[in-house]
């Protein structure tokens, strides 16, 4: 087996581990605790005060 194949396997392992660490960090920060709120949060953009056409 060539050295590059070994390097690629090792690289994929690093990428996988990285994604895993990001996931663990997100769980610890409580990102998965509130499945309801965030979908409404995006509707609150803070800059529409200057844009009267978007007022309801």
């Amino acid at each position: 087996m060539t050295l590059s194949t070994i390097a690629l396997i090792f690289l994929s392992l690093c990428v996988g581990a990285g994604v895993w660490l990001v996931f663990l960090w997100a769980v610890r920060r409580g990102e998965f605790d509130d499945p309801e709120g965030p979908k409404f949060r995006m509707l609150d953009d803070d800059d529409d005060d200057e844009n009267p056409s978007r007022k309801r």
Partner: peptide, 21 residues
């Protein structure tokens, strides 16, 4: 619940790697 989520996440990511090998 949190620890279960972390354990499952770990199992998923590592198993994906494992399947390749």
């Amino acid at each position: 619940r949190r620890s279960l989520l972390m354990r499952l996440g770990a199992a998923l990511f590592l198993s994906m790697q494992l399947m390749g090998y």
